[in-house]
Design a protein around this nucleic acid. Structure first.
Lengths: 150, 150
DNA sequence: TTGATTTAGTTTCCTAGTCAACAAGGAACT
DNA sequence: AGTTCCTTGTTGACTAGGAAACTAAATCAA
């Protein structure tokens, strides 16, 4: 018998399901701070290297510059990010967190910690470590460096 | 020192990254058959239980009925799915694969196999089995039953 | 220095979802 | 039967992102 494999026969299927659930739950958590997952990712990336041009953020987050442009605009509208014109290059500008934006970082980070704990806390320490290691191996093999967002 | 955890400190981060890469690569593969990942998932779900009402598909795929309605319309436009009116309930109808749609299933399924192999083939057999098991445990704990799509 | 090419960022159009409002049929209660 | 409530599916408004066209500025080449 040559039966067609089921959706559930693939590891990718389960990973997508779990990953989506993790993201959705995290989205729910951060929505209390009036922020989306993409916005958190943007802000956390910025936190490491302010001020930073949009083009660098785009690379870091593996998003198009168009998407970054719109994301930055939303964050500026919320007063969490600000733009400063570049001196050297009149096309360019740099993005930074506002005081308000920076103040949110530890709050959001602790929600991220909490989310990981909520999902992976059911695993044994060893299982969790194994999972983490395998994910990093897979990312490494594919040369995945960016911050995924959706 | 109370430093803020990095994005990369969370297992969820790596999982989202790997999962997105798996999905994107699969999307690329099935696009050659002029089908999206959501469409594949829809068709494969249907394959198990034709004919089936949209409402059941929505549950199975964890999508809103609105999304299913539009997805079904796209698939009908492509001639891969067809609709038959229900006899008992004049609001309802059932969805089935067309002959053409059914013929695509084994092709797409083998692309799914290929995709899993491409990504997880770099792991040892034991690692792959462990990963698969952990994913199923996590899905089980959260009572995740549906077919994720994006 | 001027013309061509490259780069930075924005904007427009498209896709694919959610959510909420809706129409219409069915079911249940009186 | 009539009223109310529930269920089925569709639609429209909205959101978030990608792709590509576009603008303006910088760089490079002759």
């Amino acid at each position: 018998m040559t039966s067609v494999p089921k959706l559930t026969d693939h590891t990718g299927y389960w990973m997508r399901m779990v990953s989506n659930a993790v993201s959705q739950e995290f989205a729910r958590k951060v929505s209390g701070e009036d922020v989306t997952v993409a916005e958190w990712s943007f802000m956390r990336s910025l936190y490491d290297s302010e001020p930073t041009p949009p083009s660098v953020l785009a690379k870091k987050m593996a998003m198009t510059k168009g998407a970054i442009s719109k994301l930055a605009e939303r964050l500026m509208a919320k007063g969490l990010v600000e733009k400063t014109e570049s001196q050297e290059d009149r096309r360019a500008h740099n993005l930074s967190l506002t005081t308000e934006g920076r103040a949110k970082i530890p709050v959001l980070a602790s929600l991220a910690d909490q989310n990981d704990a909520d999902f992976f806390g059911v695993l044994t320490k060893e299982e969790h470590e194994t999972l983490d290691r395998i994910m990093r191996v897979l990312a490494e093999k594919r040369d995945l460096k960016a911050t995924p967002v959706d």
